[in-house]
C-alpha cells in the first residue's frame, strides 16, 4: 500500500462492523473502533483472539466478510488509498526475504519501485539501519541475525516507506527484555519524529502500557474495552482484569 510521499504525518483509521470467519469459525465478530492520526493504538488480547487477522485486514491482506475499514475516510482497498497513502507492517517473524541481504531487504521497496538511484538507496538503507541500531549489517543475511535484530531490520524496512500508518504484529514476542525496550523506544520515537499512526498488536502488557496512547482489549473477535492505559487498568470487566493481571503467582 505505497506510493510517493504526499501526506506528511499519520492517517486516521476507522473500523466499522468488521467480521471475518474462517471455515465457519468466526474470528472477528463485528469490531468497531477509531484510531486518530499520530496515535499509538495498542490492541491486546489472548492468543487466538483475532489480533493478527485484524492487522491483515487493516493493511488489505485479507478481505472482510462484512464491515468496512476506512483509512483517512477512504476504503482501505480503494485505489485512492493504494496510491495516496503509505502503510507498512512489521510482521511477527520479521518476514525478511531470506534470499536477500539485510541491505537489499531494507532497500527493496525503493529498488523495486525505482524511486531512487542505487547510490541514494544505499545511503537511505544505511541511515535507516542506523536508526534501529544496526548500522554495518547491510551485507549480512537474515539467517545470520537474532530474532530481535530481524525485527529491527523489519522496522528499518518499514521506515524506508516513510509510512503514515505502521502496523506492528507482536513486536516484542520472542525478545529479551532489553531488546523489547529498544523496540518500544523505537515505536515511540517514530511517533515523535514523523507523527506516524501506529497500531500495535501485542500481549506484552509492559509494552502496551509503556507506549500506548489508547488500548483496546479484544477476546474471541470482540472488543472488551477501549481507553487510555489508566482507563483500561481500572476497567472492572472480569475478562479484562483476568488478562491484565494474570501471573504465575496467581497460579
Amino acid at each position: 500500500m505505497t506510493s510517493t510521499p504526499s501526506h506528511p504525518g499519520g492517517v486516521s483509521v476507522r473500523v466499522r462492523g468488521l467480521r471475518k470467519a474462517f471455515a465457519g469459525q468466526e474470528v472477528l465478530a463485528g469490531l468497531d473502533f477509531d484510531v486518530q492520526p499520530g496515535e499509538i493504538f495498542v490492541i491486546m488480547g489472548p492468543s487466538g483472539s483475532g489480533k493478527t487477522v485484524l492487522l491483515k485486514h487493516l493493511i488489505g491482506l485479507e478481505e472482510p466478510d462484512a464491515g468496512e475499514i476506512l483509512i483517512a475516510g477512504k476504503p482501505v482497498r480503494s485505489p485512492e488509498v493504494m496510491s495516496q497513502y503509505r502503510m507498512a507492517m512489521v510482521f511477527q517473524s520479521g518476514a525478511l526475504l531470506n534470499s536477500l541481504t539485510v541491505g537489499e531487504n531494507v532497500g527493496l521497496y525503493l529498488a523495486e519501485h525505482r524511486l531512487k538511484s542505487p547510490e541514494e538507496i544505499a545511503r537511505i538503507v544505511t541511515e535507516k539501519l542506523e536508526v534501529v541500531g544496526l548500522k554495518g549489517t547491510e551485507e549480512r543475511m537474515p539467517s545470520d541475525l537474532s530474532g530481535g535484530m530481524k525485527k529491527r531490520v523489519a522496522i528499518a524496512r518499514a521506515l524506508v516507506i516513510e509510512p503514515q500508518l505502521i502496523l506492528y504484529d507482536e513486536p516484542t514476542s520472542e525478545l529479551d527484555p532489553l531488546s523489547s525496550v529498544v523496540i518500544a523506544e523505537e515505536i515511540v520515537n517514530l511517533k515523535q519524529r514523523i507523527q506516524v499512526t501506529s497500531l500495535v498488536v501485542s500481549h506484552d502488557r509492559d509494552l502496551a502500557f509503556g507506549v500506548a496512547d489508547r488500548i483496546a482489549v479484544i477476546n474471541k473477535g470482540r472488543i472488551l474495552t477501549i481507553g487510555t492505559p489508566d482507563e483500561v487498568r481500572r476497567n472492572p470487566d472480569p475478562l479484562v482484569e483476568q488478562f491484565l493481571h494474570a501471573s504465575f503467582k496467581r497460579l
Binding site: M1, T2, S3, K56, I59, G60, L61, M82, M87, A88, M89, F91, S93, A95, L96, L97, N98, L108, Y109, E112, H113, R157, I161
Partner: peptide, 13 residues
C-alpha cells in the same frame, strides 16, 4: 508460509 509474500504485498510489490 513464512509471510515473505505478505511482506511483498504490503510494499505494493
Amino acid at each position: 508460509v513464512y509471510q515473505e509474500i505478505d511482506a511483498l504485498r504490503t510494499m505494493n510489490i
